[in-house]
Every structure is written in structure tokens, then in C-alpha cells.
Computed example of a mutant assay.
Amino acid sequence: MARYTGAVCRLCRREGQKLFLKGTKCYSEHCPVAARNYAPGQHGQSRKKVSEYGLQLRAKQTAKRYYGVLESQFRHYFEMAERKPGMTGENLLRLLESRLDNIVYRAGLANSRAEARQLVVHNHYKLNGKKVNIPSLLVKEGDVISVAEKSRQSEKFKAIDETCGSRPVPMWLDADRTNYTVKVLRMPNRDDIDLDVQEHLIVELYSK
């Protein structure tokens, strides 16, 4: 499976905002975005006039990097969003939010989406009582995700509980950190998604 293996802090700097790809580091004073709020590379600080296409591309890249999705899979989500009733851009973000690895992260059961993806692949979670190891699985309303019984006693999840225990959980999720479970109460609305991106620009880009 293809995946990005470079320095993730460079991605945040390229988009000019925190994408929260490094867990607790993103909330600390050591976050590179706070120290060097400009694009990486020798021309990162130069002023450039951004075209309409450039704005659309940056919107797409921000969304892709935020959720850790590569181009082919992102386009597949866009095509799914087009077929659904309603606004395509909002449908796209709703699909991305309903990924299993994203919900694990949102519920505070992992420090970052990358860590959530790795832990899902290693069979540390269950979906409705059954083991699941597919990070891209789309979760539905009423589904319950839980940490496997053996994993709950590990030092890894004890550390996650300490670092993520105070992180706010979206209102469309019901997280029970005592029992290491989270229930999907409903699918998120656009107001529930704190992603700083203009999704209509993504729709415009793919509609050309």
C-alpha cells in the first residue's frame, strides 16, 4: 500500500497551517509551523502570486494531507460524494470523517491519524465486537468502536489515555474513555468538521 514516508511537519509548513500529523508535538511550542510559518525549501519565504488553480490545488492538498489519503483514493471519495444527494464538497468531508482511523483519532484513542492507522492495521480495535484491520473502512451511524481487551492493558494505550484524555471529542461521537469505546451518534455536519479548507475549491478543481 502506497503511503507518504517523508517528514510530515514539512506538509504542515507547505499548507501554512497545523494539520495535526504529529500528535502531542502539534500542541507544543516545538511545532515547526509556529517557529517557521512559511513553506519549506530555499524559496519558501519568497512572495508568489497564487493563481485560481493554485488555490484549488492547495485546498485539495490540505484535505488529502489532513486525512492521510493519497490521490487515487481521494478521487474515489470525490466520485462517491458526487453520487450522494446534497452538496458534493460537504459529502466529501463527511466521507473522510467517517473513516475508521479518523474516528479512532477523533475519539482520543490515538495520538494522531497516522498512529490510529497503524494501530488499526495491527488489530488493536474492534468494530461492533469484531476485529477489524482496515483503516479506510467507512463507519456508519450507530457503530461502536472499541479497543481490544488485551490491548487495553498495554503501556501504549495507557500512554495514549494520559496524553489524549483531555482532548475534546466531537459532539457526533460518544466516547467512553473508561471502557475504551466510542459510538457514532450521527454523521457529522459541516459545522462539526474543524478543517480549515474551502471544499468548494476542490469541487471546482475536479469539475474542470
Rank of each mutant, 00 (worst) to 15 (best):
137 L>D: 03
141 E>M: 10
136 S>Q: 07
142 G>T: 05
135 P>T: 03
156 K>N: 12
130 K>Y: 08
156 K>G: 10
132 V>F: 03
156 K>H: 14
121 V>H: 11
126 K>Q: 11
148 A>S: 11
140 K>P: 01
153 Q>A: 15
150 K>H: 10
121 V>C: 09
150 K>V: 01
132 V>K: 15
127 L>S: 01
135 P>A: 04
125 Y>D: 02
134 I>G: 03
133 N>V: 00
144 V>W: 08
156 K>Y: 09
147 V>L: 15
140 K>R: 15
152 R>Q: 15
129 G>Y: 03
126 K>G: 05
154 S>Q: 11
145 I>M: 05
132 V>D: 02
148 A>K: 13
123 N>E: 09
149 E>Q: 10
140 K>M: 10
150 K>T: 06
141 E>P: 04
129 G>W: 07
154 S>W: 08
132 V>M: 14
143 D>L: 07
148 A>W: 01
153 Q>G: 14
122 H>W: 02
144 V>D: 09
136 S>N: 12
121 V>N: 08
138 L>D: 06
143 D>Q: 04
154 S>E: 13
155 E>A: 13
141 E>K: 15
131 K>C: 02
140 K>Y: 05
148 A>H: 05
136 S>P: 00
129 G>F: 04
146 S>V: 02
134 I>V: 15
141 E>R: 14
136 S>E: 13
147 V>K: 04
142 G>A: 08
128 N>C: 02
124 H>W: 00
131 K>S: 12
142 G>E: 08
148 A>P: 01
126 K>T: 14
127 L>T: 04
156 K>R: 15
151 S>K: 15
122 H>G: 06
152 R>C: 12
127 L>I: 09
130 K>P: 00
137 L>H: 14
141 E>V: 12
124 H>I: 01
154 S>C: 12
134 I>A: 10
149 E>L: 10
125 Y>P: 02
143 D>G: 05
147 V>Q: 04
125 Y>H: 04
129 G>S: 03
136 S>H: 12
134 I>K: 14
128 N>H: 03
138 L>A: 07
131 K>T: 09
137 L>Q: 10
121 V>K: 13
123 N>R: 13
